[in-house]
């Protein structure tokens, strides 16, 4: 059976800088794959290559066994990938409801009323329902992260990629987000989770990939990664 998401030999260069160097990983449905690494390790570049924002210089991306390398982001999104961003990228001058409708605008089979109802359910799950008519720019940073999460889940994608979901978020909100992420994997989604917050990564992930300078330096279960000398060196220095 093919993985929900897989990369093979993914390489991305920016001029002389090798941001990703032959990265191969895979995540199955229902699995949370943690991706860790220091700043500049290539974590976000990896996500951008997977979702089609960057065209890789080498290697391939597969979604449910189908090669999607080099396809434009909107095509890749329709293959079943949802994502959030390190710094929230909400549609600032649109209401929360409209923000959630954006990923499902092409769903001709569903009426506007049905989609709006679903959007309201999603906002209720994220405890944002009271603000549904506000502009997204009027939310706090943490609320914008929740809005992104709701927007990502709106089309019910089988693969979700979360880029630093806990960065700059209050601990109470972090706990809430962790519960939502657990629900996602519980619902059978393949979750790719990037975070500097190792405690959360270790709690949520069934497997972890450690990146350093664009290369995978370690891969395995949480216990393997915790004690891995290469990971410790990359994080703490020699």
């Amino acid at each position: 059976m093919s993985a929900a998401i897989e990369t093979r030999g993914l390489t991305k260069r920016f001029g002389g800088l090798v941001a990703l160097d032959s990265v191969g990983l895979q995540a199955a449905s229902g699995e949370t794959l943690g991706i860790i690494g220091v700043n500049g390790a290539g974590k976000t570049t990896l996500m951008n290559c997977i979702c089609g924002l960057y065209r890789p210089d080498g290697g391939d991306v597969f979604i449910a066994g189908e090669r999607v390398t080099g396809q434009p982001p909107h095509v890749v999104a329709h293959k079943g990938i949802g994502r959030t961003f390190q710094v929230p990228r909400v549609f600032r001058k649109m209401s929360l409801i409209d923000n959630l409708l954006v990923p499902v605008l092409d769903r001709r089979a569903s009426s506007d009323a049905e989609l709006t109802e679903r959007a309201e359910e999603m906002l209720a799950r994220m405890q944002l329902i009271g603000l549904r008519h506000n502009y997204a720019e009027e939310l706090s940073g943490g609320q914008q992260k929740l809005l992104e999460m709701a927007r990502m889940l709106m089309p019910d994608p089988p693969i979700v990629m979360l880029d630093e979901p806990f960065a700059g978020v209050h601990p109470v909100l972090c706990k809430f987000m962790i519960e939502r992420i657990e629900e996602m994997s519980g619902a059978g989604k393949a979750v790719l989770l990037i975070s500097h917050d190792l405690t959360s990564i270790y709690r949520l992930s069934s497997r972890v990939v450690a990146l350093n300078q664009g290369k995978i330096i370690a891969e395995g279960g949480v216990a393997d990664i915790r004690g891995n000398p290469a990971v410790i060196e990359a994080y703490l220095g020699a």
Partner: peptide, 13 residues
């Protein structure tokens, strides 16, 4: 959505 953030909109499909 495109006006507010074209890249994000494209990644939303």
């Amino acid at each position: 959505a495109t006006r507010d953030d074209a890249e994000a909109a494209e990644m939303m499909g």
